[in-house]
Design a protein around this nucleic acid. Structure first.
Lengths: 245, 245
DNA sequence: GATGCGCATGTGGTCTGACCACAGGAGGAA
DNA sequence: TTCCTCCTGTGGTCAGACCACATGCGCATC
């Protein structure tokens, strides 16, 4: 009795994934380091290369590694730890699969974004130059709604990035990316794009002004009204994404 | 010239992933539905089964599908859309890979949790029974720190769940899971576990009381002080998880 | 006719081996 | 010394095979 054929209680790809996670936790691997070649990792762990590939694929989608073919220092699987992609992927797919209702994503923005704005206002250090530059770009006349909304989305993410907090930035990016398609699809619901875009621009300026003046309560209230106002006007939360009724 | 050997600009597994995402978005697939068998999906898309498996593996880790062997209605890949696992996985691995510094996770809690508490206090409907039950469980004398902290973590997640918002719940669960190990490791830093646990219990009661009385500002302040106080006392943010210095 | 059991079937899980495209570097030729 | 050309190692993909498993059909039995 030396090795029953019924061995793999733990699935092979999970063995590979947990092995890599353990090496990350131990500090054995860090950003910039290369993962061992797939063939060698498979041999070391006693699993097939295809199982290792499944683990690496997960890490790639989660934004932990970047893979490249060829040879040299830029090739192979390199640990990058860029969370935006992973957060966006999980939120976007959960919205697509109806795990996250659109209304919950919108409500989460209404809870989180004002809190970030108030947090920014309270902080001593904050870099709002990127956000301000985006506001200037949105003042260019004749922008298409899609262009304007792309800048708008980047502005909201830039506010989170101004905090210098990677978790808040990635979360905001995920919240935004997950409903991007639905926001664009709801533009025709607006009674007047010109009026709405002008109002959004003014509100953006007011938000930045409130943050810069250090008035966290005012900044939070303005952001809440800004987000809630737009979603109410474009009627996104009402009946989009509901194919079951 | 009929089919160059240099064809795959888009990687095969991404073709499969985007195909499934498109069917989700179109409402063609939803929670409870079965994905086509891997072999058939591979044949339909013109890719190898291993490539389909990589896509399914990603969906599984992201909490979108559950796979089971065998035959019958419970076998195969079923869409489940349970976001907690995916959010926890991405945050936990990002923390492990130093993409999310511990300090940023803690700060994110300090920003998000008080906002959720205030949101709860403002809402008319909220179900705090689960949270209260956990507080009762934490009053049992003689709990080990690990047991107490497990209940504590569930209490904080239960507060988010009381909002009924899946996005907020999953985000809080992810924030909590990602630093669970570091919280446990920092228990010895506490000057007195008995004093600390007694204080935490009292603060929890105060938070719930503030929420139930509808005082959002008070609830937010109490939650901020509660989280900040514990992290300061256990000195988690200072130098844990930093293997580079 | 009702009942119980065993095997055919279809599913995911894994492994093996092979080939391709690619990028870099070593080594030889000019 | 410089340039060019293969060789090498990497990920990306495919094909085919086998296994474990859970179901459910169909046959034999009562």
């Amino acid at each position: 009795m030396t090795e029953q054929p019924t061995a793999p209680i733990a699935r092979a790809w999970r063995v590979a994934l947990e092995h890599i996670e353990a090496r990350l936790l131990a500090g054995d691997l860090g950003p910039g380091d290369h993962l061992p070649p797939e063939r060698q990792l498979a041999a070391d762990l006693g699993v097939a290369r295809s199982s290792v590939r499944e683990a690496v694929r997960v890490l790639e989608v989660l934004g932990l590694v970047r893979t490249a073919t060829g040879s040299g220092p830029n090739a192979g699987a390199v640990i990058v730890a860029s969370p935006e992609g992973g957060m966006s992927a999980v939120m976007r797919l959960q919205v697509a699969a109806h795990g996250f209702p659109i209304a919950d994503v919108v409500e989460a923005r209404l809870v989180v974004e004002p809190a970030i704005a108030a947090h920014l206002a309270r902080r001593a250090e904050r870099d709002l130059r990127q956000a301000s530059a985006l506001l200037d770009a949105m003042d260019v006349p004749g922008l298409e709604p899609a262009e304007f909304l792309a800048l708008d989305a980047r502005f909201h993410v830039a506010l989170a990035e101004a905090s210098g907090n990677t978790v808040l930035s990635a979360t905001m990016a995920g919240l935004r990316d997950s409903i991007e398609g639905y926001v664009l699809a709801a533009v025709p619901n607006l009674p007047s794009w010109l009026a709405t875009s002008a109002r959004l621009r003014a509100e953006h300026r007011g938000i930045v002004r409130a943050i810069e003046s250090g008035d966290g309560t005012d900044a939070a209230q303005r952001l809440h009204a800004h987000v809630a106002g737009y979603y109410a006007e474009s009627r996104i939360t009402s009946d989009t994404n509901d194919t079951t009724r």
